[in-house]
Design a protein around this nucleic acid. Structure first.
Lengths: 142, 142
DNA sequence: CGAATAATGAAAATATTTTCAATAAGAAAT
DNA sequence: ATTTCTTATTGAAAATATTTTCATTATTCG
């Protein structure tokens, strides 16, 4: 996702591309691994970026709602990673190292219909995560 | 789920059926709505049950891992409800009132195979939630 | 009844959310 | 471009929520 897309996405929703938000976006872009709010904060402080921890929490929430980042909850640890795809997709998460893979197929529409029929709900969203062991961790399992 | 099942489930996993755990279970059983850890705590205090808040958090985590309860995360609110089914299943959650419906079908096995083929992961678990508006809330939508 | 150890609870440490006054981003007009 | 206006956003502090630590207690098993 480039800066242009970033800008347009925000404008459409009447959101402002503030400096703190941009800093967080850049930091995630440069990161090798998923980052926790605290790690993000420390990393920006180290670079002398002026930012409040509260803004980090708020921006990450926002980014998540925009499908820009994925929130990885592993036990009591919470980390975020930038998504390659800005549109709806699913994930697979390693129970050992926490690596997150992206699944770029999503043909769950027939399911939604089934759900509506059996419950009367109007389905507007869904979330599907798979958990397992990635190639690297699979051999290490005991 | 009756007390007998409760006991057996615990014994199998070398878990102990402590008094705090049983109190929490009973409280959830009697509740009309999903409860937050805090609500659970206050409710037990009111009944003069001696219990620590820490135990509530720990028990709920445990119950969740045993598929005995479902953790409902709605924005920043966290609540728990007892599950009717003790085996693997999925949920549908109302975006308006938070009502949680149980879906007792789960034929996602072919998906897991697809995921393994495309990512190399060994899939051991998955979670699928649908979100929408329940019968009651659907007409109220603006 | 013990012995072994899973589980508890109080307190401390962290993490997250809320509140609210101050600031800054974007739009419109000049 | 510059100014002005509107209001989305920020950050500090306070309020909550959650997790960890660790010495003590309670369950279960033999």
């Amino acid at each position: 996702m480039n800066t242009g897309l970033f800008k347009r996405l925000f404008k459409d929703k009447n959101l402002r591309m503030s400096h703190p938000r941009f800093l967080i976006y850049q930091e995630l872009l440069g990161a090798q691994n998923p980052l926790s709010p605290q790690e993000l904060y420390q990393s920006l402080l180290k670079k002398r970026r002026k930012i409040g921890l509260t803004s980090i929490y708020r921006s990450l929430d926002l980014f998540e709602s925009l499908n820009m980042v994925f929130k990885i909850i592993n036990g009591s640890s919470v980390k975020y990673k930038l998504c390659e795809l800005k549109d709806h997709h699913h994930h697979i998460i390693c129970r050992s190292c926490g690596h997150v893979g992206v699944l770029n197929f999503c043909d769950i529409s027939s399911w939604s219909k089934k759900v509506t029929e059996s419950t009367g709900y109007q389905v507007v969203d869904h979330q599907l995560n798979f958990y397992g062991f990635c190639k690297k961790c699979k051999p290490l399992q005991k």
